[in-house]
Design a protein around this nucleic acid. Structure first.
Length: 481
RNA sequence: GGCGCGGUACCCAAGUAGAAAGGGAGCGGUCUGCAAAACCGUAAUGCGUGGGUGCAAAUCCCACCCGCGCCUCCA
């Protein structure tokens, strides 16, 4: 079976064929590290992670590079109070927080990596920083100058898009229409309003590097071209990013990389749709803006957030709601309870009788793979899993290990079942025994009191035909109710 | 104005021509000291609206109505 993926460049689903057998070179657009990452940022990282994990599940060896953008974004965004027109986001944050740009980017890079780990993202092979690759960027700009794609005005270096006829192809934007609808142009230095900066000079900018042109700093787009070339080479398989990157960022990247190298560089463009909150764009003024930390502080286990971000197809806008987060929590609880049932070797319904055979397990696996092969249809894949769980819950289970292997394999892809097993603390054990005694005496009042005490400590009591069982409340803390 | 995406039950969400998946919530059961878990039953005579093509349409075509994204800040 082969994987088919939608390619933004061709606007079709295509069979995925790596450049080299069994190997995939993947570049993921990473964060700009100037503030706390929000759940929308992480949707695209989680979806890129899902793609990577599924490729690995299928036996590819994946090399994944994720850039950290720590310089260069221009901004006049929806928070105008904090950012001056044309100011770099990192610089604006530095001014606002009264710190140096380096302190800012280090802090938020660290936070990004911590959150990535919490959300069970497989670490990229390398997280190159833009500011540590200035020489590579300058090299590439030099090459572009040699090849005649570039012009220089007052120490600013621009890419001349008229030299690159394919410009606009990725996004499907006809250039004349783009110009017709372009926002007010403030920069009269450019030959064409769509020309974009490779190198800028601005004496007020806090971060400055020497260059053959003028002391200054790189344009945003050049970092991905330079760093993907350095770490993945002249051609690579997949480039991922949020849909907002299609234009202009990735369009510019294609122009730079292909201009410099003289051939196609990226085979497959993989873009993740944005998420909405309560069917509206997330924004601070609407009060529906959530950082990843906001969600975790509400008491949700990071796996719950991962599941919620994952469970809608990546090319579908995801409507994020707190209700949806609770649904995700309960779905994970169901998965978790199923694993518990398996580990306790308890059959399901007493009158079940049906047995699950190995051939059935293979069918489940095949169905899961077929769903994922179809452009990562995670919703269908999860449906296969949940159908199986219902079936297994009412069957006689005689081969726990085969089922466990199946679950583990699925979880190599979805990555949500990895909560650490924690031993039940002795104090809880004592309480359980005390409760057992109370129950034997039929002192149910006392028994229920103890149950409450145990719950307050984050564990749930369940009396099963096989005895009393205690479960850790994994997915949400009491704080959230 | 240009390019593109979406509107499927109470909520989320698959399905793109041939009997409307799955998750969550609710309700009714079985079980239980009570619960929980699990299981069973229950939910769209219908897939934004109006037309059209087909033996057959959520699925194709046309029009319209909503929502969203991008058009040099954005994952």
């Amino acid at each position: 079976m082969s994987l088919s993926l939608y390619n933004t460049f061709t606007k079709r689903k295509e069979e995925f064929k790596p450049l080299q057998p069994n190997k995939v070179l993947m570049y993921s657009c990473g964060p700009t590290v100037y503030s706390h990452p929000h759940i929308g940022n992480f949707r695209s990282f989680v979806c890129a992670d899902l793609l990577r994990r599924y490729l690995e599940y299928k036996g590819y060896r994946v090399t994944q590079i994720m850039n950290i953008t720590d310089v260069g974004h221009m901004t006049t965004d929806d928070d105008p109070s904090s950012v001056e027109a044309g100011e770099d986001k990192v610089q604006a944050a530095a001014r606002k927080e009264k710190k140096s740009p380096l302190e800012i980017t280090r802090f938020y890079t660290q936070e990004f990596l911590e959150l990535s780990q919490l959300l069970n993202l497989k670490p990229a092979d390398k997280y190159p920083l833009a500011t540590e690759h200035i020489p590579e960027m300058i090299e590439m700009v030099k090459t572009l100058i040699q090849k005649g794609y570039v012009y220089e005005v007052n120490g600013n270096v621009y890419f001349d898009i008229s030299k690159f006829p394919d410009y606009g192809r990725l996004s499907g934007n006809p250039l004349d229409k783009l110009m017709a609808g372009a926002r007010v142009e403030v920069n009269s230095e450019k030959k064409n309003p769509l020309d974009f900066a490779l190198w800028k000079q601005d004496p007020k900018h806090l971060m400055q590097w020497d260059s053959p042109w003028h002391k200054g700093f790189p344009g945003w787009h050049i970092e991905c071209s330079a760093m993907s070339l350095k770490y993945l080479g002249e051609r690579f398989d997949i480039h991922t990013g949020g849909e907002d990157n299609i234009f202009p960022h990735h369009e510019c990247e294609i122009a730079q990389s292909e201009g410099a190298l003289g051939h196609k560089v990226v085979n497959h463009w993989f873009h993740i749709k944005h998420l909405l909150v309560n069917n509206q764009k997330m924004s601070k003024s609407l009060g529906n803006f959530y950082t990843v930390r906001d969600i975790l502080q509400k008491g949700y286990n990071p796996m719950v957030l991962r599941y919620a971000l994952l469970n809608t197809h990546y090319r579908q806008p995801l409507n994020f709601t707190l209700e949806g987060l609770d649904a995700a929590k309960n779905a994970l609880q169901r998965l978790s309870d199923f694993k518990l049932m398996l580990s306790e070797k308890m059959g399901g319904a007493k009158d079940a009788g049906c047995e699950i055979h190995d051939t059935r397990l293979e069918t489940v696996r095949t169905n899961f793979e077929q769903a994922m092969d179809n452009d990562l249809n995670i919703s269908e894949a999860l449906a296969v899993l949940f159908d199986f769980i219902r079936e297994a819950n009412k069957s006689t289970i005689s081969q726990q290990s085969a089922i466990n292997n199946l679950l583990q394999d699925f979880d190599r892809v979805i990555g949500v079942m990895t909560v650490q097993e924690v031993a039940v603390p002795p104090e809880i054990d004592t309480l359980i025994k005390e409760r057992e005694d109370a129950r034997k005496r039929k002192d149910y009042k006392r028994s229920d009191e103890i149950k409450q005490q145990i719950k307050a400590k984050g564990f749930v009591i369940e009396d099963t035909p096989a005895g009393t069982r205690v479960k850790k409340m994994w997915f949400i803390t009491e704080k959230c109710g």
